[in-house]
């Protein structure tokens, strides 16, 4: 009904037979207003986070809530560094991210290539088993995996948090395989005729064409590792090895939470992922679209 009414308003029949239409600029403005409303909806939590990071503790509890910090307390950001070794945590997280991204990119590429291009007996069954592991909840494997790493003497080291990345993630392997299967086989055949071996085809043909998907693998890995709370919590004991996500947890207690410091620390911890997104934005969206994962 509303749509019909809108159509009538925009297409009024004029006396000389022409149709009167809402000027293009106004039609465009209407779209912008709607989009702006959505932007506001999505930005409000982020704004609230920034505002909370700049409030004093008393302002946090104000009734009605204070939308604008008055005065803004930039000192909260420094306070975070005084309360916990936040810089150390960032460095530790960055170390884990580096090795995990490297591991995932290498292992995922190789494994996905095997599933996408090589013909061998049981390939599909193996792939199904691989996908089946996606259905196993993490809680089920938590203790056995911990026992395994404990027996290897790796608890309180970064090895349990890094080495699994070099064996590939089922989801990322699936993603890469699907992407590789979109690349025409003709290219492989042409390279084979030119004398290229399997690894050369991978290196010189497949990998350059898979860059958007590889960026996606890298970004996903970055985000998972940066935000991972349970892994570092379970495997690390020495506070000097703790990561950003554990550092944030220090401000959230069983009975009390320093919301202003938690938000200040969260804001700072968001900076690397945001920079990454800005840098990798174009390739990331291309990868998402090509992998069929775009929302």
């Amino acid at each position: 009904m509303q749509a019909e009414l809108d159509a009538t308003r925009e297409n009024v029949q004029l006396g000389d037979g022409r149709r009167w239409q809402l000027p293009r600029i106004l039609r465009g403005a209407r779209a912008y207003v709607v989009l702006l409303l959505f932007v506001l909806v999505f930005l409000t939590p982020f704004y609230w986070m920034v505002a909370t990071a700049l409030k004093s503790e008393v302002q946090l509890f104000a009734l009605p809530p204070a939308w604008v910090p008055s005065p803004p307390i930039f000192e909260n950001f420094m306070q975070v560094f005084r309360e916990v070794p936040f810089g150390r945590f960032v460095l530790n997280s960055a170390t884990l991210v580096f090795w995990n991204v490297l591991g995932q990119v290498l292992s995922t590429t190789l494994i996905a290539y095997g599933f996408a291009r090589l013909r061998f007996p049981g390939r599909n069954v193996l792939f199904l088993i691989l996908l089946g592991t996606l259905m196993v909840p993490d809680q089920v494997t938590l203790v056995p995996q911990f026992i395994l790493f404990a027996k290897l003497g790796w608890v309180n080291t970064y090895l349990p948090l890094i080495l699994p990345a070099f064996t590939g993630s089922p989801f990322l392997i699936f993603l890469m395989r699907q992407y590789m299967m979109t690349i025409p086989l003709d290219l492989d055949e042409a390279a084979t005729i030119d004398g290229a071996g399997r690894l050369q085809i991978l290196r010189y043909i497949i990998v350059p064409l898979c860059v958007p998907a590889l960026v996606l693998v890298g970004v996903f890995t970055f985000t998972w590792v940066w935000n991972d709370f349970m892994g570092p919590l379970i495997y690390l004991t020495d506070p000097a090895k703790f990561t950003v996500s554990l550092g944030l947890g220090f401000f959230h207690g069983a009975r009390e939470t320093s919301w202003h410091l938690l938000m200040a620390a969260s804001l700072m911890s968001m900076i690397p992922p945001v920079i990454l997104f800005l840098v990798a934005q174009r390739r990331l969206l291309g990868g998402l679209a090509a992998a069929g994962l775009k929302g």
Binding site: I147, L233, I234, L246, G249
Partner: peptide
């Protein structure tokens, strides 16, 4: 001494105990 975030501490302890650590 090791201090952990309060959230998940119970899981941390139980996992470690289950593994003899």
């Amino acid at each position: 001494v090791s201090l952990f975030p309060s959230g998940g501490f119970g899981d941390r302890v139980l996992t470690a105990i289950a593994a003899g650590e």
